[in-house]
């Protein structure tokens, strides 16, 4: 291996610094979730499970968690169905306004979430959808279409269209062709987009903030609790969420690698 020059050594240090900047806060969160004190200061006061027990005894928080899981599951199912269909339409058909349609679907991904939330709030108010978890599900499913469409379209572009013709020549109808040829080809993209949509929906604040009514999701619960101050319970539920996210990442990396 080539000897590193002085500025390259400096760079190694710099990169370690950036990685520390990225990970130390998460470590701090986890450490304080086990710290036996109401304030988050050093030196640490001792080990406790108390904050985790408090999470599981906090009915409001558990309801919010349940709402979040329901919203994320429904929104993911809905967005996968509509998004996959949209990707198929965009892949196979030309129609006037196609470019505009595609850009519109991708827009919520680059636009600050609260603009999308405000647009939806205005519209739902006009057509009479009340602020509720249902409104949140519809909002999330719509805003996340871009995730599904971009991933599935990238996969469709790589699949061989002659397979579809072969399937038709062998007498399969379009529905059978979809389930036996197209769907297996795009399954990794659907899985990946599904995991990403679920994570994004579970963590979503701005759209949810404007569309939800009295029932709240976990991020909104945490968000409104934090405006009043810090409780170490948040460290505990936060650490649990970090743990689950890491498991999901490992799962998705594993899933996508196996298919290659």
């Amino acid at each position: 291996m080539k000897q590193l020059l002085w500025w390259q050594k400096g760079m190694v240090g710099f990169v370690f610094g950036v990685l520390a900047f990225l990970y130390l806060p998460i470590v701090v969160l986890v450490v304080f979730s086990f710290n036996d004190s109401k304030v988050t200061s050093f030196p640490l006061s001792g080990f406790t499970w108390h904050w985790y027990q408090a999470v599981f005894a906090n009915a409001q928080m558990l309801t919010a968690l349940k709402n979040s899981l329901i919203v994320a599951t429904c929104a993911t199912g809905l967005t996968l169905t509509i998004g996959t269909l949209a990707a198929l339409v965009l892949d196979r058909h030309d129609f006037p306004g196609k470019g505009l349609f595609r850009n519109a679907i991708l827009l919520p991904l680059s636009l600050p979430g609260l603009v999308t939330g405000i647009a939806m709030l205005n519209f739902y108010k006009q057509i009479g959808i009340p602020q509720s978890l249902t409104a949140v599900v519809i909002g999330h499913a719509t805003a996340l279409l871009g995730v599904v469409v971009s991933q599935v379209m990238a996969r469709l572009a790589k699949t061989d269209h002659r397979l579809l013709e072969a399937s038709a020549d062998l007498g399969a109808g379009p529905v059978e062709t979809f389930f036996r040829v197209t769907l297996p080809a795009i399954r990794p993209a659907i899985l990946g987009a599904g995991l990403l949509s679920f994570t994004l929906s579970f963590d979503e604040i701005p759209v949810t903030y404007f569309l939800t009514g009295r029932d709240i999701t976990l991020p909104i619960y945490i968000y409104s609790t934090l405006r009043r101050g810090i409780t170490p319970e948040i460290n505990a539920i936060g650490s649990l969420i970090v743990l689950v996210s890491l498991l999901l990442i490992i799962l998705s990396v594993g899933l996508l690698r196996d298919r290659k």
């Binding site: 998460i26 969160l29 963590d203 810090i230 936060g238 970090v242």
Partner: peptide, 15 residues
């Protein structure tokens, strides 16, 4: 870190 809750990543800086 992009996969870890965005709210929590902001929150850690508060503590």
């Amino acid at each position: 870190p992009l996969w870890v809750s965005y709210l929590l990543r902001a929150y850690t800086w508060k503590i």
